[in-house]
Design a protein around this nucleic acid. Sequence first.
DNA 1: AAGATAGTTAGCCATACACCTAAGTATGAG
DNA 2: CTCATACTTAGGTGTATGGCTAACTATCTT
Lengths: 114, 114
Amino acid sequence: MANYLPTLDRVFHCLANSTRRRVLEALSAGPSTMTELAEPGEMAMPSFLQHLQILEEAGLVRSTKNGRVRSYELNPPPLLLADNWLDKQRKHWNICLDQLHHLLTNPESEPEHE
Amino acid sequence: MANYLPTLDRVFHCLANSTRRRVLEALSAGPSTMTELAEPGEMAMPSFLQHLQILEEAGLVRSTKNGRVRSYELNPPPLLLADNWLDKQRKHWNICLDQLHHLLTNPESEPEHE
DNA sequence: AAGATAGTTAGCCATACACCTAAGTATGAG
DNA sequence: CTCATACTTAGGTGTATGGCTAACTATCTT
């Protein structure tokens, strides 16, 4: 229990699946129950549940159970991890693009795309 | 060939691995060769090569070969895909946090963390 | 030409992933 | 009490992932 560890690996792994991204998109509009989240004939429930559990273990989502209904809500903070990583990288892209430009205007070696 | 398809799935999958993230971080400082990128005793070359190929197939990285040396450089555009997705989501987080706040101040149902 | 260097290919292995069906457990409605 | 609803658990399947060793190719260096 308490296996809820938001690591970059886990967070990005969650995002690497369209079903899980769809859930996050849906939850960004507000809390929702399992059956609401599950698109009608898309997937068997147990398979879908697994995705929700993966999301929950990564801390991207929290769930509570009322009676027999479990509802999910977004838990943004872990997403900031991913966001931050990309932010840091993005700062370098500009530099990198400058360098690229420099290389293209001063061709030292022919870029042969083998 | 030309299996270079930057999809959200592929891009996020690349980012879900610390070795691959490290490569991207390294390349954000400028182009580099395979052996430079491979940390000394971290991993066998063929295993490392696989990561580079995964990055290249996702379009995050491009490579050229000069003589026996292959060098890699960052290819930022696909990263923008990931960046954009998170951007869209982030806009909702604020709204979502507001809703959360609203729920916390107007408790309709006890949030029992089962 | 011989040897070192840089990368590549082939093939193996264990574990993780994404899906399924079938059967089980609460819980709410009638 | 009975039945439907809403999940849950158990267990199985095929493919993908992430790692390895061993052996090979191509290119410098001497």
